[in-house]
Nucleic acid binder design. Structure first.
Lengths: 364, 364
DNA sequence: AGACATATTGATACCGGTACCAATCGGTGA
DNA sequence: TCACCGATTGGTACCGGTATCAATATGTCT
């Protein structure tokens, strides 16, 4: 008894059965907690399992039940604070339901995203949460695969027109409009817009810009629309030169903002719609020796401890990251449980947090 | 032909075999790329697989091969920027070797950590990367389970005396000593030390403190020892009241620093050994209306964009997060591949980044 | 043409669970 | 004492791959 198995192998149900002197099925029932087992037998079996250090093999169980109790998560970058926060929310909700999380980063690359979904399908995850790297008008063949296989899907943070699935996003447009409106209210009329990963030419005008939106991430597009709406409401003409056309990395944001500041009629305020865009903008101000908010007012996206402890404290649009992930996971779990609720897009509210980085434009 | 299967089930090898009119084994050989198959048959099989949209079932493959091509990662909090960065490094290295990553957060809780390891064992991951929540002198029974099962393990960021396994850490003590030394060099003699999650009483003195170290995280302990060494080298007496005894959350760090600043002989500089500790310290200064570096000099741990764009730019000990994760994964993969290299602890260098948050103490 | 080596193929036994079904056990009431 | 019922138990067929082995087909050489 209590013989340690060699070679690092794990004891199986059969071995426990042999050790306990009962049949395989009896052990399965005892440990699986189904069917009926006499108290005496149960004890014998449990003792044998204990002695052998038995642990169930989830792979075998999945093989037989068809469920892996694993959620697949596909997002741009686990290292990014926004996605890291979201992931935490997902993981918390998953754990509570006794699920685990398999994460894949795509770096906003469509090929990697497709490969990631293939992996998740092959590994037979029970559900998928996806922050698409595709623009809202993209076609996403891999999604069909999920649907075909009956794997529930929840879109996170970004919508895609062609995909009919539950989604959890924030009210990007309203939040953005509110932020820009607060700049306008403070007296600004030249407001720079630094946005996320967009790889297109500079827009020739507002209409051209709307065209570009079709290929942009939904979230980025909405933020830009919010900006446009705020301008329009205030009767401020739209100026292409105040909108960056590519700011995927912080350094690109810095370069873009330096470009704006070099204009003959430079912006007196900047709305940066991502963390990297904000820090990139700050770096640009710093390089030009400009001060915030005295020379240029700033509003960022995504709150963090840093934003609130620096001087001046940064006004930001704060996304409920944890909540976003939690809700996405809960939504997915409900769907997996066979929920027949109609497909829905859940919109969470992002709070505009007013701090000290906004002041009236300089008198001059 | 090309009949779509109903019920969301995936086509199996048998179905492909039927569709192609060949035996199961032949399909397996064709798709698995082993054995030999005639070019003609190969084509027929591939066409059938294509028509049916065949995708291999990784679960079944794992069942048969005994490997899951999945790495398990156990860390305190995926939402924490440090761990998020490390995780990204792990995921990148894993992907390159065609492995996926299952992540579990423990919130620095031993029970959750034990449960996490159980899950990974049950799911039969091929290897585990663990940032232990346990102090260096803790006993960790779950680790034995891993060893028993022959699952390779790499410790990350923190060492545990009782565990013999490969490890990847940074040179916490030297980095800490260097940071504190630079404060001393600037003229400071009253230097506050705000450290990470430690749940013990205030130390009664240096010796008592060393005792406390045994139950602290290895990394936290090393950082404190670095602090002590720097003081000793400069002949500055150790003062318990300048060392926080609990600063697990930012708010606790703030409270602790406020306490220090209220001392009759308050610190003129603070070394915060975690991101939260630094932002917490900054918040305390802000509440007291003190300015950095004019009134109090600061050095933090972990670099971020924020640290370098704020005013003053923060001096920090920058950990190579991505590299840390990447190396841990590579080390694990090597061990999984049957590497017979002796167990080793890899020590990466953390750079001390000198910026503007350190100045001589105020003249007064 | 015959013998033999090689390429190709199909059948089948695993892997370790789950779950159904039939067999057995024990106890009860007539 | 016997028939009968429910509780308990063991046997076994899956799940979908992998890998071995024997059987068959193909081709070559003498």
């Amino acid at each position: 008894m209590s013989i340690q198995r060699d070679g690092g192998a794990s004891p199986t149900i059969s071995e426990v059965a042999a050790e306990a002197g009962v049949g395989r099925a009896t052990v399965a029932r005892t440990l699986g907690g189904y069917g009926s087992v006499s108290p005496k037998t149960r004890e014998v079996v449990l003792a044998a399992a204990q002695r052998l250090g038995y642990r169930p093999n989830s792979v075998a169980r999945s093989m037989s039940t068809g469920e892996t109790r694993t959620l697949g998560v596909v997002l741009a970058d686990v290292g990014n604070p926004f996605f890291a926060g979201v992931l935490r929310g997902i993981a918390d909700a998953a754990r509570r339901a006794d699920y685990d999380v398999l994460v894949l980063s795509t770096d906003e690359d469509l090929a990697q995203e497709a490969a990631a979904i293939d992996v998740l399908v092959d590994k037979r995850v029970d559900g998928v949460i996806l922050a698409p790297a595709a623009g809202r008008q993209a076609r996403m063949p891999q999604i069909d695969l999920l649907e075909q296989r009956g794997i529930p899907l929840v879109l996170l943070d970004r919508l895609v027109d062609a995909v009919t699935a539950d989604a959890v996003v924030i009210n990007n447009r309203e939040a953005s409009r509110e932020a820009v409106a607060s700049l306008i209210e403070a007296g600004h009329r030249r407001i720079g817009f630094v946005w996320g990963p967009v790889t297109t030419e500079p827009a020739a005008g507002a209409d051209d810009l709307r065209r570009i939106l079709d290929s942009a991430l939904w979230s980025d597009g909405e933020r830009l629309l919010g900006y446009l709406e705020a301008l329009e409401q205030a009767g401020i003409p739209f100026d292409t030169s105040l909108v960056t056309h590519v700011a995927k990395h912080e350094s690109q944001a810095t370069r873009a903002v330096l470009g704006m500041l070099a204009l003959s009629d430079p912006p007196t305020a900047i709305f940066a719609t991502e963390t990297d865009a904000l820090t990139g903008s700050l770096r640009a101000l710093r390089q030009r020796g400009l001060r915030c908010p005295d020379d240029v007012s700033l509003i960022g996206f995504d709150d963090s401890s840093w934003a609130s402890v620096m001087t001046p404290a940064m006004s930001v649009v704060a996304q409920p990251m944890h909540q976003l992930g939690k809700l996405a996971a809960e939504c997915l779990l409900a769907r997996m449980a066979g929920g027949v609720a109609p497909v829905a897009t859940h919109v969470l509210e992002a709070d505009f947090v007013r701090r000290d980085s906004v002041a009236p434009p300089p008198a001059n």
